[in-house]
């Protein structure tokens, strides 16, 4: 079995976000990026699903972060890592086109990716790409088991409800959470991978004309507009007193 995992580099929300000079994007100068946390869960689930003879292929767009994401994936146990080069992409629609080119060449049985990312303004990668490729897709998945050419998955709904589906492979799954906390790769192991293994490259061509919509503005919600700020503990204790909870 061949399992592909799509990885995306996204802004780290721990950092303060600022709008760029045009007002239509993020100011990326001081911005830190990291692997999309849901993609980390997708990778973990792939590694848990894979048996000894199965392949786990990590895929990422070239550019900033790709080496770190892909060597880390190898250090965690992925069998291959492919970097997509040759063209940049815009938005989910662009990413979907790029990834579908390499996935069509690789013909995988299962494609896992994070359920969503913090910047997927024009749709979620998994179900969008699946539809373009004519593959079935289930998103918001937190349990997967495989039996032959079928996957049995749990999709989460609101209020703690879940639905069980059976999906014919090849299929795409948007992972909400792996069944275990994503494993940690020590820096020494990642360094070792950088020295002993190589990233494969796949050249993508035209990734389309974009999402059909244009970003016309970025703005920060007015911070703290609603909340009355409290600066000392006595005031907070008084408030709780006033609410009748102490």
């Amino acid at each position: 079995m061949k399992i592909a995992v799509l990885l995306k580099w996204v802004p780290d929300l721990v950092e303060e976000l600022e709008v760029d000079d045009d007002g239509t994007g993020l100011d990326t100068e001081d911005l830190k990026f990291k692997l999309n946390e849901f993609d980390d869960h997708a990778l973990e689930e792939a590694l848990l699903l894979a048996g000894d003879d199965d392949e786990v292929i990590a895929l990422a767009m070239g550019g900033e972060g790709s080496e770190k994401m892909l060597f880390t994936a190898l250090a965690k146990g992925a069998t291959r890592a492919i970097r997509l080069t040759g063209s940049s992409t815009e938005g989910t629609t662009g990413l979907a086109t790029a990834f579908s080119q390499v996935l069509e060449a690789e013909s995988c049985d299962l494609i896992l990716t994070g359920v969503q990312s913090v910047d997927d303004r024009d749709g979620q990668l998994g179900p969008f790409m699946a539809s373009k490729m004519g593959l079935p897709c289930i998103s918001v998945v937190s349990e997967v088991s495989l039996s032959g050419q079928t996957a049995s998955v749990m999709k989460e709904y609101a209020g703690g409800m879940m639905a069980e589906f059976e999906v014919d492979l090849p299929a795409v799954l948007g992972i909400q959470a792996a069944r275990e906390t994503p494993r940690y790769a020590p820096v020494s192991k990642i360094r070792q991978m950088q020295q002993t293994s190589t990233l494969e490259e796949f050249s993508i061509t035209d990734t389309g004309t974009g999402s059909g919509s244009t970003v016309s503005g970025f703005s920060q919600p007015e911070g703290g507009s609603g909340a009355k700020m409290i600066s000392d503990i006595e005031e907070l204790a008084e408030l709780l007193n006033g609410l009748g909870v102490v």
Partner: peptide, 23 residues
Amino acid sequence: STSMGYDLANPVAASLDLPLVAY
């Protein structure tokens, strides 16, 4: 923009080639 919506809006937009705006 819900669990069901993810697996509905994306395939609909993709198959009809319509722009999609999320969230």
